[in-house]
């Protein structure tokens, strides 16, 4: 049975997407990437970025809090050194992390003609950078401006990855859709704080971090359901998926694709397991993923 999903004209062999920052640049574990619907790179900034001081990771049973920051090779090295090495059969989406309009202009102008790149994920939401990122993503006006600039510079699919930190994600979603985004990615990590009571200071090197993992799934499910009913472009869910059941829940809630993030850190082959779980479900039910998207019934 085919698990394919279309977003407009773009075809995905199944609804699973490897989330930004949890699968590197796509240079390793390609046997997993090649079975997924799409792959998103770590956030790329205009300048090379060393990221945040240690410690960068904290976890509990159901959460990860990370403050890796946007450690990445930067646009120039990504284009000249990394991109030529990427050899995958799955659509490659590059996560673009700009702090202002100029950054996004430079990033897209430089990468838009690259044939290997299927599309872009605009990171309007990273909580791990001081300026830009989340600040950009908290204002519907600025989300609209970045998205329409990006739209004017490329014909490739554009995904707007949004935040719900200190803002109304229904408004930013609408702004991105109106400005021509092809899909919304809901959501990036939630602002979070870990306190070291002995030192009376934040535990993470950057002071605070971004919360992800199974604990955020019910919260993100609700956002996906609400936004997908109000906005008429596809929604891609990102938050706490660890199983095929989680993916099905997101599809029912209204997501067309579903990203896998933190679970890749526990097991880089989790995507393969989840894919098998999905296959089994859709075979048993005799339906396709497209047949259940948004089909959540009223109580």
């Amino acid at each position: 049975m085919s698990l394919e999903v279309f977003l407009g004209k773009a075809r995905f062999r199944n609804p699973l997407v490897l989330a930004s920052g949890t699968f590197g640049y796509g240079l390793t574990h390609t046997h997993v990437i090649d079975r997924m619907g799409a792959f998103v790179t770590k956030g790329i900034t205009v300048q090379e970025c060393v990221g945040n001081p240690q410690p960068r990771i904290w976890d509990s049973r159901e959460t990860v809090i990370n403050s890796v920051g946007l450690e990445n090779v930067g646009l120039k090295r990504f284009k000249e050194e990394t991109l030529p090495l990427i050899d995958i059969s799955t659509p490659l989406y590059v996560n673009l992390a700009g702090v202002d309009l100029d950054d996004f202009r430079i990033l897209i102008e430089s990468l838009s003609d690259e044939e290997k790149i299927a599309g872009f994920e605009l990171n309007l939401s990273c909580p791990n950078v001081k300026e830009g990122g989340a600040a950009l993503g908290q204002s519907a006006d600025r989300v609209g401006k970045v998205t329409s600039l990006a739209r004017s510079l490329t014909t490739k699919p554009l995904w707007a990855k949004l935040t719900s930190n200190f803002c109304d994600v229904r408004e930013t979603s609408k702004a991105a859709a109106d400005a021509g985004a092809d899909a919304l990615v809901l959501i990036n990590t939630l602002n979070a704080l870990v306190i070291d009571i002995k030192g009376r200071k934040p535990f993470l090197g950057a002071g605070s971090g971004g919360l992800s993992g199974p604990a955020i799934k019910p919260y993100v499910l609700y956002i996906v359901k609400e936004v997908s009913r109000q906005i008429n472009i596809p929604v891609i869910a990102s938050g706490g998926v660890t199983s095929g059941t989680d993916v099905i829940e997101y599809l029912l809630a209204g997501a067309s694709l579903v990203q896998l993030g933190s679970i890749n850190l526990v097991d880089p082959e989790a995507g393969l397991r989840i894919l098998e779980e999905l296959k089994r479900y859709f075979e048993q039910e005799g339906i396709s993923p497209a047949g259940i998207i948004g089909r959540l019934e009223e109580r």
């Binding site: 770590k42 960068r56 990771i57 890796v68 880089p268």
Partner: peptide, 9 residues
């Protein structure tokens, strides 16, 4: 984070 080179943690 991952132990496998994926997350930069």
């Amino acid at each position: 984070g991952c132990g496998t080179g994926l997350c930069m943690g």
